[in-house]
């Protein structure tokens, strides 16, 4: 048979392997958008602090030295010391691991719960949709921070419970987003085509619909990550969740708050800045992540 061919649409460079294309695309996105590049750098700094924190800090974050209490920032103690003489710089760095763990674990949990519940609701509709929808509505009916307080107070003051509480209050965001996106794609041509190929419904959900809504979910993940950190710090601030003397940004701000009036601003200031930077970084990261995850932006 003769091969009928039309004129080639355009000549492009030969397609590289998937990973290389991804790396090149990431470089492009970062080079194109300095804000994203900045937030990525910040994110990597936080990651290094979280992983290596305890081994790189100059002082033991828990060791108190009453002789050196309440010193202002200096060459010895970059961020100063607190009322027990503990080095604030060391404590801020060491706290990164705990705060990041809470944020990442809660986001992973809520992504698994909310994301899958939402996709199923959008895809199947009917009773699944109604049940997921009403659960979301019920959660949304509470003031979210108060709900998180209630959950931690009821279940007990542990890191696991902070993670669970943070995941639960973010559930509606994920469920609703995933539901609407899955619902749009339910009748898409490629989903019908997948059925014709003999794909079962669960497979269509996992292999066809989920990957296609990942770019949007990435933005959501990044935004809630910042929110989760704030939430964890907030719970610790009011005395729920992580307990002293564990270094944690929220507790440190809470402890330092009493000293601001007397002029020792650095105790609350530096953990506060760390908290702000972390939230700021995650919020900016979202757009960049979406651009990297979405293959349609890759050419």
């Amino acid at each position: 048979m003769t091969i009928l061919s039309e004129a080639p649409a355009e000549t492009k460079r030969p397609a590289a392997s998937g990973l290389m294309a991804m790396v090149r695309h990431t470089q492009y996105v970062l080079a194109e958008n300095p804000v994203t590049a900045g937030s990525f750098a910040l994110f990597i700094a936080f990651l290094i602090a979280a992983i290596l924190g305890p081994s790189i800090v100059p002082y033991d974050p828990l060791a108190s030295d009453t002789a050196a209490a309440l010193q202002s920032p200096s060459a010895h103690h970059w961020f100063g010391t607190d009322q027990l003489g503990r080095d604030i710089f060391s404590r801020v760095i060491v706290a990164t691991r705990l705060d990041m763990t809470i944020a990442i674990a809660s986001v992973v949990l809520v992504f698994l719960l909310g994301g899958f519940a939402g996709i199923a609701a959008g895809f199947y509709g009917g009773w699944t949709d109604r049940i997921v929808g009403r659960i979301s509505d019920t959660i949304m009916a509470f003031p979210l921070f108060v709900l998180a307080m209630g959950i931690v107070a009821a279940l007990g003051n542990t890191v696991t419970n902070i993670i669970v509480a943070t995941a639960i209050i973010n559930f509606p965001l994920y469920a609703r987003l995933a539901r609407s996106e899955a619902n749009i794609r339910r009748e898409a041509g490629f989903v019908h085509a997948a059925r014709l190929s003999g794909n079962s419904d669960p497979r269509i959900l996992m292999c066809f619909i989920l990957p296609n809504i990942m770019p949007l979910m990435m933005v959501q993940i990044s935004l809630t990550m910042g929110y989760a950190i704030l939430n964890a710090a907030g719970l610790s601030f009011i005395g729920l969740g992580v307990r002293p003397p564990t270094p944690e940004w929220g507790i440190m701000v809470a402890e330092g708050a009493a000293f601001i009036v007397s002029g020792e601003w650095w105790i609350a200031f530096f953990p506060g800045v760390a908290l702000m930077l972390a939230v700021f970084c995650f919020n900016l990261l979202g757009d960049g992540l979406r651009d990297i995850v979405d293959p349609q932006r890759r050419t």
Binding site: A188, G189, F190, H192, P211, N212, Q296
Partner: peptide, 10 residues
């Protein structure tokens, strides 16, 4: 399918 774009998984 009718729309070749829409019927392929992106």
């Amino acid at each position: 399918f009718q729309d070749p774009t829409e019927s392929l998984n992106p």
